[in-house]
Design a protein around this nucleic acid. Structure first.
Length: 651
RNA sequence: GCGCUCGUAGCUCAGUUGGAUAGAGCGUCGGCCUUCUAAGCCGAUGGUCGCGCGUUCGAGUCGCGCCGAGCGCGCCA
């Protein structure tokens, strides 16, 4: 079912084409996509006539004039202007109201059946057990959950999978460190597990120790290179050579220590000290790293004791994750970790090995992708004989296709992993599995500026708590809110602000995390939309009932504020469809914001001019306005629900 | 070095397959609580769209070059 907005565009294009003697579905489709909202608020719709004019060999302004002349005769247009090569139309308020408001009040407005009979598998959130659910996990979690709801709204069967990182070396690390660092009394405490893991990771970080050992030499080499490069630059005369040297010096300066001679000496001495310490600790770190690998090996060989330990850690982490997911209203079809595939890995490797290009290299099993020269090969198995995550992803992809026969399989994973996902798809393709084409990497950008109070991790849970605390202050001060509902409403608003805040950003671009911004509820935020929704609910409560559809003359609507609200509402179904097809929830977020903004202006206009209020004395007008209120109220609620944000009726 | 992403207002970001005078929010400044909820509304301020060529009737958008940023690149996930 087409949206009211799509119908308006379609009608305009069909008439315009007919006016110059053209028709046809293909032409119509092409023209519909050219229709836009005119600038300067000079109308409801604008059609640039370049394309149309070309087809009938007229100058664009001439074509626009002719078309405008014909459109003027149509009853649904209040005004038609040809401005140069553009046609701007204003649709009559009556037509807007009649075509939009009843549709928007229909339950299920924005939903359709485009995905009926099809299955989408979504892989999202996917935290690693033993590590905390950190703030950066919000992106995959919230984008994936929104895409699931969007697909469901379009009739898809949705399989939401949380592919836990519950297998791998990090378990060996945690288990072996637990014996030394763990507090037996706090076995079931997820926070304590994280503490142990972080410390274990630090201890066994062989790379970090080696880097520390190499650091003093590297720093001195850099300084020498910098000095040499500066001398060369001073001596060089050729312009091209100078330019090259300048950029070299600049590059070196970025990495080299700076400051006075004394400061540099102190810095180098510091590095020397760190290197000595690292040299001492390195053997222990290597031993712990080896211990962790061996533990994983024992797990993969089915060692009962090792598996029991692993299972317990896993349960503790999962319980904590589920608590946070439930705060955000997120449910999964299943939490299926990598461990699900531990039994079929050998068979998977054997199956991949049937394809040419699989070879042993320094003990490790690698797959060459010949069509990708210069690209790194895929590693299936380490020289220790343990598997890597690509191996497990291959097994998982095959399994998912067998179980769900998906039409789409979406991997909501950070952009960083682009190479990994593309290798996964290419390996599957090379194995002759054509469903690889149905797999899409829904990549998202990084969150910068995670200013932290401890270490490098901001816990998602803590950010939610901060936002809820801020919301509670406001709720306690609110006169509109019943005191018994403060806590519940604060949770709704605080969590909603965080979820909405993330989904407002274009998924592919990086964004900067600032706690102050994220818990600031002023401006275009989740609480802004929720607040608008609450105001509408309040009006409905005070209205003494909404008249039946037949008893209302909806065409009485027509102030500029009301027109703006209706036009914004008309685009809602398009936003749902577009957000789903582009895997871009922010398209819906922005649409919802626009509806809320127009509505907010509309409602506030009643403060200056009482005749613009919804609850006016003229009962016919009041009835029509109440219908618009109820249309916006239900649409905002539906939009927020798709995004995973609750809509309070008072705040 | 190779590959991917990106550079728009003081800050954070939009800008629909190339279309009219590049838009929001935050911030700053000024109005509006006798108000269907001020978490709001109205107005002002603020931009050589990184730089330079090119394609086009038309470029923030497409191509090339340069400058700058981030990420990835065999035994972690």
């Amino acid at each position: 079912m087409a949206s009211p907005y799509a119908k308006l565009r379609h009608a305009l294009v069909v008439s315009a084409a007919k006016a110059v003697g053209l028709s046809g579905d293909e032409l119509t489709a092409a023209l519909v996509s050219q229709v836009r909202v005119p600038e300067m608020g000079r109308g409801d719709l604008a059609l640039p006539c370049f394309d149309l004019a070309k087809r009938v060999k007229l100058a664009p302004p001439e074509a626009a004039r002719r078309i405008a002349g014909v459109l003027q005769e149509e009853a649904i247009y209040e005004r038609v202007d040809a401005v140069g090569p553009y046609i701007n139309v204003i649709v009559t308020a009556r037509h807007l109201a009649e075509s939009i408001v009843p549709a928007a009040r229909t339950p299920g407005y924005g939903r359709d059946e485009a995905g009926a009979g099809k299955t989408v598998v979504l892989d999202f959130s996917s935290p690693n057990i033993a590590k905390p659910l950190a703030f950066h996990h919000i992106r995959s979690t919230v984008i994936g959950a929104a895409l699931g709801r969007l697909h469901a709204a379009r009739g898809w069967r949705v399989i939401a999978l949380n592919y836990l990182g519950d297998w791998g070396k990090q378990f060996g690390l945690l288990a072996s460190a637990w014996k030394r660092l763990g507090d037996p009394a706090r076995r079931g405490d997820a926070k304590h597990l994280v503490e142990v893991y972080v410390e274990a990771n630090r201890e066994a970080d062989v790379e970090r120790h080696r880097a520390a050992i190499a650091a003093p030499v590297e720093a001195r080499t850099l300084l020498e290179q910098l000095t040499a490069a500066r001398h060369e630059l001073a001596a060089a005369s050729d312009v091209a050579a100078r330019k090259k040297l300048e950029s070299k010096v600049k590059g070196l300066q970025r990495k080299a220590p700076e400051g006075s001679e004394a400061a540099v000496a102190t810095y180098l001495a510091g590095l020397d000290g760190q290197a000595r310490a690292a040299t001492e600790e390195l053997p222990a770190a290597e031993a712990r790293d080896r211990e962790a690998r061996l533990y994983l090996k024992r797990m993969e060989e089915g060692d009962v004791e090792a598996l029991a330990e692993w299972r317990e850690f896993r349960e503790t982490s999962i319980a904590d994750f589920l608590r946070i997911y439930s705060r955000m209203g997120i449910e999964f079809f299943a939490l299926e970790g990598e461990s699900r595939y531990s039994d079929v890995l050998a068979a998977t490797i054997a199956r991949v090995a049937e394809k040419p290009g699989v070879r042993r290299d320094d003990g490790a099993l690698v797959v060459d992708l010949p069509e990708e020269p210069g690209q790194p090969p895929v590693l299936l198995e380490t020289r220790d004989g343990t598997t890597l995550y690509v191996t497990r992803d291959i097994a998982a992809a095959i399994d998912r296709h067998q179980r769900f026969a998906f039409e789409r399989s979406l991997y909501v994973i950070a952009q960083d992993q682009a190479l990994h996902v593309s290798q996964l798809k290419k390996t599957l393709s090379a194995m002759g599995l054509s469903f690889a084409d149905k797999m899409t990497h829904v990549a998202f950008g990084r969150i910068h500026g995670m200013s932290t109070r401890r270490g490098n991790v901001v816990f998602l849970d803590e950010v939610l708590d901060e936002a809820v605390a801020k919301a509670r202050e406001l709720c306690e001060a609110s006169e509109a809110l019943d005191a018994t509902r403060t806590a519940e409403t604060a949770e709704t608003i605080g969590v909603g602000a965080i979820v909405f805040g993330d989904l407002k950003n274009l998924r592919a671009s990086d964004y900067t995390f600032k706690l102050e911004d994220i818990i600031n509820f002023d401006g275009h935020t989740g609480p802004y939309v929720q607040f608008t929704h609450a105001r509408l609910a309040s009006i409905l409560r005070k209205s003494e009932g909404i008249p039946r559809q037949e008893a209302v003359d909806i065409g009485l609507l027509g102030t500029p504020e009301e027109r703006a609200v209706m036009l914004a509402l008309a685009r809602f179904p398009d936003a749902v469809a577009d957000a789903c097809e582009a895997f871009e929830p922010s398209l819906l977020t922005r649409c919802v914001l626009e509806v809320a903004q127009c509505t907010s202006s509309w409602l506030s206009s009643g403060n200056q001019d009482r005749s613009k209020r919804v609850l006016v004395d003229d009962l016919a007008l009041r009835g029509a306005r109440l219908h618009l209120v109820s249309a916006v109220h239900s649409t905002l609620a539906a939009g927020l629900a798709l995004l995973g944000v609750r809509a309070p009726d008072a705040m």
